[in-house]
């Protein structure tokens, strides 16, 4: 009995641990894409966030400051991205790739001195009373602050996008920037904000990796999670609730990878490691197959350069 509870708990922790960084990055990217901007630099921003969070935690000894540093670093890189794609009208695909390559290099350079350093990871916060409920209590109410925050973010963004005027304006900008401009909305400023929010969330996602998941810093530690998050946004049809579902489904796939060998499966570890990537491809194919539906959900101006004209 207690053994199966422990097992269940281990599985849940794996899922949550794999899902939460993706959830942050994908929710941020969803907001960015809702404004019509495609941020293919997500992977780079996560890496920069991860290294900044780790470094700040090492220096300050406070992992919460680390999370803030991760968010700030992600936002800063996103600002740079915005400078290129919004102010200098650069191609969003090319710039995103540049961001990722730059982020990989810069994070490796900044993190070189921190390889092998250890920190105190982000503590878990048991919610009083609720956490004491047998079985479910420790599964649902005994996590670190970022897990709770990510779930609150899903609710908050659902309300924001569908039930506030600012959310309506965000959708309008992504749908038709020229119309929004004609009505007098500051399209570029709104897109900057959406992009910076996305960058900050990618930074927090990165921070989760270096402060909770491992917790340590190693080069290229995101291992493609930024790209997976991008695929999740497509899978979720740009809807917050479905991003949540997608991230946790993906976390489920990761269990196979981590627990597969423990359960005595004799598949080489490399093949298990392929699973998340293959799952992403499969999910992407399934969701993209219906091109009509995809087009209806997709922000109409996604990825296109907009210059406020006369």
């Amino acid at each position: 009995m207690s053994e199966s509870v422990l097992m269940l708990q281990a599985v849940a922790l794996t899922i949550i641990g794999a899902a939460t960084p993706l959830l942050f990055a994908a929710l941020g990217e969803m907001v960015t894409e809702r404004s019509g901007v495609l941020n293919l630099g997500l992977e780079g921003m996560m890496l920069i966030g991860a290294v900044a969070a780790f470094a700040a935690t090492v220096v300050s000894g406070n992992p919460y400051l680390g999370v803030l540093a991760g968010a700030a670093a992600g936002a800063l890189v996103a600002l740079l991205h915005g400078l290129l794609v919004l102010s200098l009208l650069a191609n969003q695909v090319a710039t995103g790739l540049a961001m990722t390559l730059f982020g990989v290099g810069l994070s490796a350079l900044l993190g070189a001195g921190f390889v092998g350093t250890t920190i105190t990871p982000l503590p878990t916060l048991a919610i009083p009373l609720l956490a004491d409920v047998p079985l479910l209590g420790s599964l649902l109410f005994d996590h670190n602050a970022l897990v709770y925050l990510s779930l609150l973010l899903v609710v908050g963004l659902s309300l924001f996008i569908y039930h506030t005027r600012a959310g309506l304006i965000l959708r309008a900008v992504g749908e038709s920037p020229s119309s929004a401009h004609a009505l007098g909305y500051p399209v570029i400023r709104i897109r900057y904000l959406a992009l910076i929010f996305g960058g900050a969330m990618a930074g927090v996602g990165g921070a989760y990796l270096s402060l909770v998941s491992t917790p340590m810093w190693s080069e290229n530690m995101t291992a493609g999670r930024g790209w997976v998050a991008l695929a999740l946004v497509v899978f979720a049809s740009w809807k917050p609730g479905r991003v949540l579902a997608g991230a946790y489904m993906f976390g489920g796939v990761t269990i196979l990878q981590l627990h597969g060998q423990g359960m005595g499966v004799s598949i080489p570890s490399q093949f298990l490691s392929m699973l998340p990537y293959l799952a992403t491809v499969v999910v992407l194919v399934l969701i993209s197959r219906d091109s009509v539906k995809l087009r209806e959900n997709r922000p109409a101006s996604l990825g296109r350069v907009f210059r406020p004209s006369a």
């Binding site: 740079l80 710039t95 790739l97 540049a98 961001m99 390559l101 730059f102 982020g103 290099g105 810069l106």
Partner: peptide, 10 residues
């Protein structure tokens, strides 16, 4: 190396 490469494209 990576930083220089990224900066150049940027």
């Amino acid at each position: 190396t990576g930083v220089f490469q990224g900066m150049l494209l940027f």
